[in-house]
Design a protein around this nucleic acid. Structure first.
Lengths: 163, 163
DNA sequence: TTGTGTGCAAAATCTTTGCACTTCG
DNA sequence: CGAAGTGCAAAGATTTTGCACACAA
């Protein structure tokens, strides 16, 4: 897995300068689990480099993305999410109620990925997995899941509607 | 797979009105395979409902998303991509080069999720899985590993225009 | 010292909201 | 006919660009 030092070293070797803002962004990315967007990274990066501007965040994210440390999610069509590329994938399991996050190793996915790859002809390079649920504590506190995404015909015609 | 008629019927049963713009959006989504954003849907929907405005596209995408026919990709962090949900729980496999997206069934994930659930005590309700790679066409087009996740030292500071 | 990198401000995009008019049911 | 739905315009967000100053090498 890539450490902060290693990333910085590689950037340096590639001819980029190692600046405070860049350090801060790299650090923020490594600490922030899962996907990030510019605003989130900015907020976090300011902890390490208080004066850093949002513009610099964008530029640094681009740079890291070019350099191969980040993957832009849906880069084509204007989606502006980023996810760190990590060897030894770690995935996250997040409690939707209390926000507790657990990391787990997800290597069991490999056979699944192989199958998908066979079926689709795609060569799979990266995967992003995030699980959302209730941790054991919150399961006790909570009533059964109120919402669901099934396209079930809703009996209530009432629009809960436009926010 | 969900047909246009079926979606419209379900919307109608749920109390929504079936209008020309909505028809057009549904149609556009079904024809455009894979991942779309508002602008793309708009362009296509105008073929069926020339006067339709972009605003209506956004509102209809929201509606379809609420109703469970669309999955907002990375809804979390302000990513504004959408992909049709065809049936049950599926995930997306996206070509990083051309953006082509394929949905695939994720049932093989269940044993994996069960294991994670056992190990962590979490009850898993949702999962977000996205695979990124190269589709077969782009594999051919692409030169043998021109870039890769390896951050190769760049000799030229100049930017290539590649995105 | 040099030129890459940064911050600020402003432009360009993308998305949402308010309001009067349309149209489905 | 009545209320949901639409389009337009304008407000809000988000991202990019231009330029002079700052700082890593």
């Amino acid at each position: 897995m890539l450490s902060e030092e290693r990333i910085l070293r590689q950037l340096s070797q590639a001819g980029y300068r190692i600046t405070q803002p860049r350090r801060a962004v790299v650090r923020a990315l490594l600490e922030d689990d899962g996907y990030s967007n510019a605003a989130k990274v900015h907020e976090r990066a300011r902890l390490y480099c208080p004066g850093v501007g949002l513009v610099t965040i964008y530029r640094t994210l681009d740079l890291l993305s070019e350099a191969g440390f980040l993957r832009r999610i849906h880069s084509q069509d204007g989606c502006h999410g980023y996810a760190p590329i990590q060897r030894g994938h770690r995935h996250h399991l997040i409690c939707r109620r209390c926000g507790a996050a657990v990391e787990f190793k997800g290597c069991d996915l490999v056979p699944f990925l192989d199958r998908v790859s066979d079926e689709t002809g795609y060569r799979i390079e990266e995967h992003l997995l995030e699980l959302i649920g209730l941790c054991s504590t919150c399961q006790e506190l909570s009533t059964p899941c109120p919402h669901s995404q099934e396209p079930s015909p809703r009996s209530t015609p009432g629009h809960d509607d436009e926010k």
